[in-house]
Design a protein around this nucleic acid. Structure first.
Length: 564
RNA sequence: CGAGGUGUAGCGCAGUUGGUAGCGUACGUGCUUUGGGAGCAUGGGGUCGCAGGUUCGAAUCCUGUCACCUCGACCA
């Protein structure tokens, strides 16, 4: 390809609304253009890199025995109604109507249509197992799209679904996907961690996330250096500490005027935040619930959502808090609630004794509160975030924390969807059984951004060879010099004959401009045809290392072949 | 959803007390340049987000609306 003909424009300046390197560089290098918040078009060189990633995924999925197909992105409401997800997805789903007013949506994920397709196609155990996948645009009306294609509203996802006769079969299908995923991310040269994810309310027996380590990652990961345990912060289990068997002291009501925050309360009472239990009032699908965690902990809304199998979970409005507690915000507690609401207590609190809570009365707290004697919670569950230093749920050693971006997720689904949609098969004995499912996703466009996050410098992208839009760029420094230009053309043509993806920067620009652009778009190897063109000597420069050498044309061609 | 902010040329930004729009860059042309985003000259490109209103006159003031961005989703 000739750069003079390439549909591309690079930008010298950093676009004002891009925060992170991958987003800035994708815009500056002309890979993508924004159409609306969280919606991007891919321009030719962006698409080429995107396709590299897509093809690696496709190859490894095919190698693992999965079969590719493609489902509609535009789906009827009925598709999601049988599983209950038409309601459950809530405002994240892009919904629309056809001319007859019939409800449709743009698919956010495709368990249902795949399950239907298998249900309608497969009748016998002889046809199982089967793993199907597609690489397709997905639509989610994110609350807050950000970081370019990392959190977008339209994005490309590879989603796969396995169907097996039993758990043992599911284990095999799942392992095949696990191995395929490792090969994919290994081939892409990503620095990633596989993290155990709790399968939560979805049931099933396992789930793992592939996290690319990155300081700008949206997910926090907990991990244990000792036993190798690793989990998403949202999913990391918190162990129940040893019970505090201190003798229960008499409960006291304490006047705490103008003490609103934990800090003020601790200063006032001269105690640690861990001696306090805060009670937070939530609105869970319209139901008001009180949630109790230790004063220095964070409530994990994912765990709470799973506990209630909820769709919408928000902090309760101030009005609700004041009505339910009969006090100003800041004095909620489990004792003396004015309305009968459910009280959820975190596991950790169950081992505490003689703690402090809000008194459900403005300017008062209770001291020396004890479970059972002073109040009884309706539910006891793990509803807090794990923190650095927590005991590892596997080996008990202290956990560490890091950040990452989720690029892949594999999940043993079980029979949630096959049950709901009647996806069954006949076994050897002619009996009907429900298929056991797994689902496996990779964010393709997001992976592309993750590669850039891990492969860039101040000058631009440093594409790994496998994901580069072109492997080589030939840069003649003087296009008006016949000797210079004809040597460059010669090298260009020979590389094309060898089937190498190559650019020639035939623009009548100054060398500096061409070098800057080559660096920005991140072509792995540059062949500069310059001063010593008449001697048949060119310069090669590797983008990744900055290494340069003056070599003969033949040696340059060898360097290209060795790129891999 | 809450709070704040911004909408003016492809991109980055100015625009004063209201008087009919500018700078840098990018783009076109010419000449000089040619190994790390050149210089000079010249030119094209804007319903100032949109809709109302005030005014002789609005990018500027008022109202509404839309879009986009950031922070927060959290401690009771």
């Amino acid at each position: 390809m000739r750069v003079s003909k390439l549909f591309m424009t690079t930008q010298r300046e950093i676009p004002a609304d891009a925060e992170i390197p991958s987003h800035q560089l994708m815009l500056r290098s002309g890979m993508i253009r924004k159409c609306a918040s969280g919606i991007y078009s891919f321009m030719p060189i962006g698409l080429r890199s995107y396709k590299k990633v897509e093809n690696i995924i496709r190859e490894e999925m095919d190698n693992a025995g999965a079969q590719e197909l493609i489902m509609p992105a535009l789906l009827t409401a009925e598709t999601y109604q049988a599983s209950g997800r038409w309601e459950k997805f809530g405002p994240e789903m892009f919904r629309l109507e056809d001319r007859g007013g019939r409800p449709f949506c743009l698919g956010p994920t495709h368990e249902e249509p795949f399950t239907e397709a298998v249900r309608d196609t497969i009748k016998s155990y002889k046809q199982l197992p089967v793993t199907l996948y597609q690489i397709q645009h997905k639509y989610r009306d994110e609350k807050r799209p950000r970081f370019g294609v990392i959190r977008a509203r339209e994005f490309v996802m590879k989603d796969a679904y396995s169907f097996d006769v039993d758990e043992e079969g599911l284990d095999k299908s799942y392992q095949a996907m696990y191995k395929a995923y490792r090969r994919i991310f290994d081939r892409l040269g990503l620095d990633y961690t596989v993290v155990d994810a709790d399968s939560g309310a979805m049931g099933g027996s396992g789930s793992q996330e592939f996290m690319v380590k990155s300081p700008i990652g949206e997910d926090a990961i907990c991990y244990c250096d000792d036993c190798g345990y690793a989990a998403n912060e949202e999913k990391a289990q918190c162990t129940v500490p040893e019970k505090d068997n201190s003798e229960a002291l008499p409960m006291e009501k304490i006047h705490t005027p103008d003490v609103k925050t934990i800090e003020e309360l601790m200063a006032f009472m001269n105690t640690e935040p861990s001696a306090f239990v805060k009670t937070i009032i939530y609105n869970i699908d319209g139901k008001i619930v009180a949630v109790m965690v230790r004063g220095d902990r964070e409530i994990n809304e994912t765990k709470l959502t799973n506990l209630y199998d909820a769709t919408e979970l928000t902090l309760a409005a101030f009005d609700d808090v004041e009505r339910v507690t009969g006090a100003k915000v800041g004095f909620a507690g489990p004792i003396g609630l004015k309305e009968k609401i459910e009280v959820v207590m975190d596991n950790e609190v169950s081992s505490m004794a003689n703690f402090i809570v809000g008194a459900c009365e403005t300017d008062y707290h209770f001291k020396n509160v004890n479970i059972g004697r002073d109040f009884t919670p309706d539910k006891i569950a793990d509803v807090r975030n794990a923190v650095e230093g927590d005991a590892c749920p596997k080996c008990g050693k202290p956990l560490k924390m890091a950040r990452g971006t989720e690029v892949g997720h594999i999940f043993k689904l079980g029979t949630k969807y096959s049950d709901a949609l009647g996806c069954v098969y006949l076994d050897k004995d002619g009996r009907e059984n429900t298929m056991i499912m797994g689902c496996y996703g990779i964010g393709v466009s997001r992976t592309l951004a993750a590669i850039i996050e891990q492969n860039h410098d101040d000058d631009g992208i440093k594409w790994p060879v496998v994901a580069a839009p072109y492997k080589v760029i030939v840069v003649p420094t003087k296009v008006n010099d016949e000797e210079n230009m004809s040597l460059a053309e010669n090298i260009y043509n020979r590389l094309i004959e060898e089937g190498v993806e190559v650019l020639i920067d035939d623009r009548n620009e100054r060398p500096g401009v061409k070098f800057k652009d080559a660096d920005l778009i991140g072509i792995p190897l540059r062949i500069t045809v310059g001063r010593r063109a008449s001697e048949g000597i060119v310069e090669i420069k590797y983008r990744a290392t900055g290494e340069t050498a003056e070599v003969s044309v033949e040696e340059a061609l060898v360097a290209v072949r060795n790129l891999g």
